[in-house]
Amino acid sequence: MSNYTVAPAPHVHGGDSVKKNMLNVIIALMPAYLAGCWYFGIGALIVSCVAMVSCVAFEWFISKFILKKQPQINDLSALLTGLLLGMNLPSSLPWWMVIVGSLVAIGIGKMSFGGLGNNLFNPALVGRVFLLISFPAAMTTWPIPDQLSLFGSVDALTAATPLAYIKQGIFTTFTEADMILGNIGGSLGETSSIALILGLIYLLATRTITWHIPISIIGTVLIFTGIMHGIDPCTYASPLLHITSGGLLLGSIFMATDYVTSPMTKVGQLIFGAGIGIITVVIRLFGSYPEGISFAILIMNAVVPLINRYIRPKRFGAK
């Protein structure tokens, strides 16, 4: 007899890992990220890099010195949080606000619950919403897309986002091509619809996520705004405008699908997505904020434990 290893079955693993999934999401974010950097120039680059570096640094410090456990920055989840947070901010945001946002995202949104896997809310959104409430002026000052700024000083010109125009009942400011390509005002990662959809296709192809959450959110928004638009086209914008504007695509593809804070069953995910869609539209059409996807996702995050409790998978041989 010699020293062989003994372990319970199964003896092989499928090779999936947390790191792989995180990396896939980061890769899927790249088209939208690069588009944001193209449109918003050096400012976008600074904001996003500050967010990523500070998120990773905060995760390392908090786990090392406060939680006293081996830091898990290798799993790339902190980097992803930083990237998502950065992409949710206007490119003109001062760097120190970005760092405050990162601290809240990692410190309060994630590590206070015990780290990856234990958080109730999407950390990047916690950071973003904290900034939005604390610094409303800075967070709603959107620079005009101007790729030339890459070579010059950061552009001081600002403009309202399409959603702000929608709120005021002006629907024709931007052309459809601009909306799809992302040549509009907004946070640096949310503007280019086509790049975001490229990311969705990549995520679906690599089976990192399933279609349930993004499609149910987008579908609900389509139906809801479609009905409202049908009732009164002058007051309510068209569904397509709603979907291509604001953070809806970024939110539904990358934020709502976060494993930790979304339901586990397919049916649960559909309910979760529908809830986000409805809340988003309600905030957009009837609330005081022009955009509501962040709040909608956070509200539905809170409902996830309840959904997980009551929506069970279909059992084999259930009576």
């Binding site: 999936d16 898990q72 896997g117 234990n118 494993y259 804070t261």
Partner: peptide, 8 residues
Amino acid sequence: LDCIRCGK
């Protein structure tokens, strides 16, 4: 690692 509740 901790469960990330992916539901896989």
